[in-house]
Amino acid sequence: MVETDIPILSLKNIHCYIGPSHILRDVTFSVRPGQCLSLMGRNGMGKTTILRTIMGHIRPTKGIVHINGVNSALMKTHIIALSGIAFVPETRSIFPNLSVIENLTMAARTGVDGRSDWTLERIFNIFPKLEERQNFWGDELSGGEQQMLTISRGLMTNPSLLLLDEVTEGLAPLVREDIWRVILEIKNSGIASIIVDKHVKRLLEIADQHVILVRGEIVFHGDGKTLVECPELMKQHLGV
């Protein structure tokens, strides 16, 4: 395919301010179709800000975000979403006034390239728990179930790139493993992803490239093999 040469997403020299604070400094990376990138770093280093900048919630002061090769500076958030990017926020933001099934169907649409692989049946297949709870209100779910619902809601848009923000945070170990299983399944189905998480071991298994952020700057960008070879980097910035 010709498209594979164009990254789905590329950030070039991104600088971002929130109020007077310089949050992102010269961030550059790109994600190709099917690739999985991990964003690591301690709290407050700008990981979520990168995701929000990609979605257009925050606009970079300097630098360019390209989505499928197009500058996204003039795209509104919903246009960015329609270009095949789905955001699974840490806050989950389930719609409490809609039932589980409505939370899912309201997001459903075919992807940019006309794919509709992710249907309600497939979602219920990977998360049987959601099928049991399909008629519950969004706020009647446990934390793990809410997280499953948020991921599923993202998948229902048939994205080509999925942004996962700390999706395993605060979950029971068994539920967390369940989520990791699904993340792997998503990756194997060919959807590119950017994963923000604290579980270095799991990320090393899944992601193709890793980015470590310190105070908004990239201090490491490379594959898992290179990262494992720098134990002092991992100890210093990730506490492993």
Binding site: H78, A81, S93, L98
Partner: peptide, 18 residues
Amino acid sequence: QVIQGIKINEHRMQGLGY
């Protein structure tokens, strides 16, 4: 469903492509 979603979280609805 979309307008009810907007009431709860407008950013999220934009994030879903609306």
